[in-house]
Design a protein around this nucleic acid. Structure first.
Lengths: 229, 229
DNA sequence: TTTATTTTTGACCGTCTGGTTAAACCAAAT
DNA sequence: ATTTGGTTTAACCAGACGGTCAAAAATAAA
């Protein structure tokens, strides 16, 4: 299963990616990586000093790939509904092509939590919150929208998108038992997830109106009309 | 960190549980387990023949613990709404006490997918579907309720409950950045998740009414009134 | 007490693993 | 042709690891 016609470093990196994704840091063997890359084991240490360094390089690229998929959501030229639909369609499609990615990243972060800080350094979480509030605050209940709520909503959306891939193994077994196809599940999920979340947000909006706001919120009632068209 | 005053086999099992949960199968060392149990390494092989056997014993118990938490949902004496509220309250509370469990089980299943079959053998997925449909079919859109929908809804609910614990490491980092407490997030989540799902289901029900059923569905409109009280 | 059985230990083994090193290889420059 | 620089290889190393074994220690049976 050699990989030919590429620069050695690239061959090593790809082979390492393949092996680390499948076996994890602890389960991966340098010899296996060398075999797949079709080179001598010493070359691994020539290009990357140690297993740790090689792993760090692979992990950083994969984690960056995974996290970068959340950024497009901040583009302001869509309504919240369309953003939700866009996100699930694109994100699930991406994960279908990279189904081993989430569990790998999550597991290795859990094994060494310090890894996560490097990525959070470059991300301004408060800015993300402010941006969401600015773009969709009124659609989500106006001033009553707390940062806690944003965190809950965001983590819920991400959960719905990613978790089925993390639980791939179980899901595949369950689907087989009721004669359903793996691929069909995810095709259906792109739309289902979006409508599910949109429905929930609508309902939240209604609730926050009835419990918090009373009268005077013209803007809100307009939004409600928009949702309930 | 020895564990005293217990039967040797029990001490070994607990120490093994602790180490496997923290390091996973590949990262765990028999010597570490022996040290924590406060016994000689040979004793591990005396009671459990090999590392694999020891791991299998630990994994089976932990996986059973995790999966068993879904069963109470099938008790029929609650409305769907109350069932959802009950599930999130109890399930998240359980995971708060066992936060390492999901990622461990999911990761080891991914590493060796055959593990999952042993558990699915004893579970009749179709029966689960029929039971849900019988108990809550009308609340969820009546005859239009397909098995695909049940799978989507169920997997969504489980995703919302479990995923934050799988992404523990990232979540902790993000919360710290906006001065939020880990525990507060999960306390809030118990209620938020329930209302989120209930709101989404209400909305689904409305949609299926408007698109599929037209008139004649007395039972459905009653249920809608119940939801929109 | 003696005998038999089970439990626990320390010493040991073969293998695997990440890593090192010195030499060989090779293409380009001199 | 020789030198120079980077690249690749085979052989090797020290430590870690899962596992074994015979003997000691503890417990129960006689």
């Amino acid at each position: 299963m050699e990989i030919k016609d590429k620069l050695t470093e690239e061959k090593i990196f790809e082979a390492a990616t393949q092996v680390f994704l499948a076996k994890g840091m602890d389960g991966a063997r340098m010899q296996d990586i060398a075999d797949i890359a079709g080179i001598n084991k010493s070359l691994l240490h020539y290009y990357f000093r140690s297993k740790d360094k090689l792993f760090d390089a692979v992990f950083e690229k994969l984690a960056k790939t995974l996290f970068s998929k959340f950024i497009p959501v901040l583009s302001p030229d869509l309504t919240l509904e369309d953003k939700v639909r866009f996100f699930f369609r694109e994100h699930i499609a991406f994960l279908q092509q990279n189904s081993a990615l989430p569990l790998f990243v999550l597991n290795e972060i859990n094994r060494k939590p310090a890894r996560v800080q490097k990525f959070l350094e470059n991300i301004d979480v408060k800015l993300f919150w402010e941006t969401v509030k600015k773009q969709h605050g009124t659609e989500l209940g106006g001033n009553a929208l707390s940062i806690d709520s944003i965190v809950q909503i965001t983590s819920t959306i991400i959960s719905i998108s990613i978790f089925p891939f993390v639980a791939c193994g179980i899901l595949e077994g369950v689907l087989k038992k009721v004669n359903l196809q793996f691929d069909d599940y995810f095709e259906m999920r792109k739309e289902f997830a979006a409508e599910f979340v949109i429905g929930a947000l609508k309902s939240m909006n209604l609730n926050s109106q009835s419990t918090i706001a009373s009268g005077s919120e013209h803007e809100n009632s307009e939004k409600v009309t928009q949702y309930n068209k």
